[in-house]
Amino acid sequence: MRHLIFMTASLLLASAAAHAVDEATAIELAKTNGCLSCHSAKEKIVGPSYIAVADRYKDDKDAVPSLVQSIQRGSKGKWGRTPMPAHDTMGQADLKTLAEWVMSIRP
């Protein structure tokens, strides 16, 4: 029984590590794709801060897919009158990395 508990705990830790957000990669994606021209972690620039986004979606089980869609297709009216341009040339893996990273940011 002890062996089974250890194996289960090991699998859970490995799974969490596999799904952990690679912050350095996400920041590089944000820089490369112009995200940091309009957003910052803590303060509103043109668009909302990443902390504000994470806070708004913290209880939404579909937050990551919703953010992926907003990043890819752009959005209008969610955070005021200024629209967010589409980033439709980004791949799904990069979009997901950015969305997961935004959701991981805490004050």
Score class of each variant (00 low, 15 high):
Val21Gln: 09
Asp62His: 14
Leu12Val: 15
His19Glu: 11
Met84Cys: 02
Ser40His: 06
Pro83Lys: 06
Ala99Ile: 03
Gln72Glu: 14
Ile71Cys: 01
Arg81Phe: 07
Ala17Cys: 09
Asp94Val: 01
Ser10Asn: 04
Ala63Ile: 08
Ala41Asp: 09
Ala16Lys: 05
Asp88Ile: 09
Ala54Asn: 06
Gly34Trp: 09
Ala9Cys: 13
Ser66Thr: 15
Glu28Tyr: 07
Ala26His: 03
Lys31His: 06
Gln92Asn: 12
Ala17Val: 10
Ala20Ser: 13
Ile27Arg: 06
Glu23Ala: 13
Lys42Thr: 15
Val64Asn: 00
Ile45Ala: 10
Met84Thr: 01
Arg56Ile: 09
Ala54Phe: 04
Ala99Tyr: 01
Ser104Met: 04
Trp79Thr: 13
Ala26Gly: 07
Val53Trp: 02
Gln92Thr: 13
Gly74Pro: 01
Leu4Pro: 00
Thr97Trp: 02
Thr8Trp: 07
Gly91Gln: 10
Ser49Leu: 05
Ala54Glu: 03
Ser40Lys: 08
Val21Arg: 03
Ala26Trp: 02
Ala17Gly: 04
Trp101Phe: 10
Ser37Ile: 11
Ala24Cys: 05
Pro85Met: 10
Leu29His: 05
Met7Trp: 12
Asp22Tyr: 06
Ser40Trp: 04
Pro107Thr: 12
Glu23His: 06
Glu100Lys: 10
Ile45Glu: 08
Tyr50Pro: 00
Ile45Pro: 08
Tyr57Gln: 05
Ala26Ile: 04
Gly74Ser: 04
Ile45Leu: 15
Ile51Lys: 11
Ile27Tyr: 02
Gln69Leu: 12
Ala30Arg: 00
Ile51Val: 15
Cys38Leu: 02
His19Thr: 11
Ala26Asn: 05
Lys58Asp: 14
Glu23Arg: 06
Val21Ile: 13
Ala86Pro: 13
Gly34Arg: 10
Val53Asp: 02
Leu12Tyr: 06
Ala63Gln: 06
Ala52Gln: 10
Asp62Met: 15
Lys31Asp: 03
His3Asp: 11
Gly47Met: 03
Thr89Gln: 12
Val53Glu: 02
Val46Trp: 07
Leu98Asp: 01
Thr89Val: 05
Asp94Trp: 00
Ala18Met: 08
Thr8Ser: 12
Thr32Leu: 10
Ala17Asp: 05
Ala14Gln: 03
Thr82Lys: 08
Arg106Ala: 12
His39Ile: 00
Met7Gln: 11
Leu11Trp: 13
Tyr50Asn: 01
